[in-house]
Design a protein around this nucleic acid. Structure first.
Lengths: 235, 235
DNA sequence: AGATATTTGTACGTATGTATT
DNA sequence: CAATACATACGTACAAATATC
C-alpha cells in the first residue's frame, strides 16, 4: 500500500474511533510530516483523500477540520447493485425471480442510444425483486450483447454485476441516473403488488465501462411506498 | 487563476470544441509539460481535475483518455437551488409565492436533529413554486435562526441561498438528500394542483456549512408527474 | 492597526517504481 | 528487453489566507 494511503487509513481510524472527534483540528502538515516521517507532498495527498471522502475540510491559513460522523454514514453514493445494497441492510427476506432473459434486436432508438447499428443484438433481462414477501421492484435490463456476452438466467438470478466484473473481468466506471415517476403499466400491474397505487418510481440507469463504452440501460421500477434514495451532494 | 487551472481550462475547451474527441488519448504528461511550460506536478494536477470532473480517465502505462461528451452533459450534480436550476432551463414561466415566514420553537425531535436545545428558535418558510401556471412544488424550509438570521418574506421570495452566501457571507458545503414518495397531505392538496394524484415525491435536504454546522432541513414536495432527478455515480 | 508567525496552496525539480506497449 | 507513460515520494521556494501578538 502506498505511504499516503497508510497515513490516510490511520487518520480515518482516529476519526472513527473518536481520537479525532468532529470539529477538532487535525495536526498541521508539518506535525504530520514528523509523526509519519513523510514529505509534505505525501501528507497532503493523504489529507486530500480524506477531504474527497468527506471526512475533513481544509481551510487555507486555518487548518484541517474533522466533519461530523453522521455525514459520513450517509455516504453510500456510487454504483451499488441490488444485491450489494440489500446484503448490507440485512434483516429482510429478499428474493429475485428472473422472468426472462432474451436476445432482441436493437431498434432505431436503442441503436442510437448505445451508438451501435440498428439490428445489433441486445440481451434483455426482466427480473422481479421480492422483499418480505411483497413484489416491490421490477427491473428491465438491456445489455449490448457483444460487450456483455454469455448472460444466462442463472447469472441473472445471482448478480450480473459480479459476473461482469469477475468473470468477464471488465471494470465498471460510472453510471448516469434518472429518477422520475411514471404511471404504472400493464406489466407493472402484472409483476408488482401495487396495492392500488397508480404510479411507480422509475430509475433509469445508464452504465459505462472504464473505457467509456456504454454497455447497459436498466429501468428499475419501484412501488411508490417502498422506494427511497439517498445521497450526498457537494458544493 | 493558478496555472494548473489554466491548463485544465484549455484542455476542457479542446474536449468541448472537438479538438480532443472522445476515446482519443491526451498528449502525455511530458508533452503537456513542454507545451504549457509547466512542471510535471502542475500538469498532473490539471489532469487530476479533469478526471474528477469526469472528462477523462487515467490509465497507468497507457495514457489519459477522453470520455464521451454526453456523459458530461449530465453532470449537474451538486447542490443546486430551485432558482439556480430553473435559470438554466429557461423557456419556462416560473414563479415563487411565499406562504409564510415564521419563527417557531424547536420541538424535542428537531432539537435533536440540529444538535440544539429544545425551544431554540427556528425560522420556518413555506413556499409554492408555480411552473407554466401549475403549482407543482411545495417547499417547507427550516433554518436554525441563530445561524441564518434576518430572513424575511422578501428574501424568501428571491433566493435564500444567495442571501446566505452573499449577504451573510457563509459558505455552504454539502447536503444530504433523501428522495421518497409519500401520500399527499391536506396541505399538499391545498397548495398544489395535484390533478388527482394520491402521492407526492418528497425530497428531504439537510444542508451544512463549511464548518460542518447543520443549519437547514428542507422538505421539497413535488407533484409526481413533474418530478425528475438526475445524477452521475462513480464506482 | 500593524507586524509576525502559522497553515495551507501553488510550482518547480529530481529520483524511483509500476503497468503497458 | 527496452521504451513509454503514469504513480509515488522526497525536497525546496514562495504565495495567500488566517491567527496571534
Amino acid at each position: 500500500m502506498p505511504k499516503y494511503l497508510q497515513i490516510y487509513q490511520q487518520l480515518v481510524d482516529r476519526i472513527q474511533n473518536g481520537t479525532l472527534p468532529a470539529e477538532t483540528k487535525l495536526p498541521s502538515e508539518t506535525e504530520l510530516m514528523q509523526e509519519f516521517g513523510a514529505s509534505r507532498g505525501t501528507v497532503r495527498k493523504a489529507i486530500d483523500a480524506l477531504q474527497d471522502k468527506g471526512f475533513v475540510r481544509k481551510h487555507q491559513g486555518k487548518g484541517v477540520f474533522v466533519l461530523s460522523q453522521d455525514a459520513i454514514a450517509f455516504q453510500f453514493n456510487g454504483i451499488v447493485s441490488f444485491s450489494e445494497a440489500h446484503r448490507q441492510m440485512g434483516e429482510h427476506d429478499v428474493k429475485t425471480d428472473v422472468i426472462s432473459c432474451d436476445l432482441i434486436e436493437a431498434t432505431e432508438e436503442l441503436a442510437h442510444l448505445f451508438h451501435i447499428a440498428p439490428g445489433t443484438s441486445l440481451t434483455q433481462v426482466k427480473r422481479v425483486r421480492t422483499i418480505d414477501g411483497e413484489r416491490v421492484i421490477f427491473d428491465i435490463n438491456l445489455f449490448v450483447t457483444s460487450l456483455v456476452p454469455g448472460l444466462t438466467k442463472d447469472i441473472a438470478g445471482a448478480s450480473i454485476y459480479q459476473y461482469i466484473e469477475q468473470t468477464l473481468g471488465r471494470q465498471i466506471s460510472y453510471a448516469k441516473r434518472k429518477i422520475e415517476a411514471q404511471p404504472a403499466t400493464a406489466e407493472d400491474q402484472q409483476y408488482l403488488d401495487l396495492e392500488g397505487t397508480s404510479h411507480v418510481i422509475v430509475i433509469t440507469n445508464d452504465t459505462y465501462f472504464y473505457e467509456g463504452q456504454h454497455f447497459e440501460r436498466t429501468q428499475s421500477r419501484h412501488r411508490l411506498d417502498k422506494f427511497q434514495f439517498t445521497d450526498i451532494a457537494r458544493r
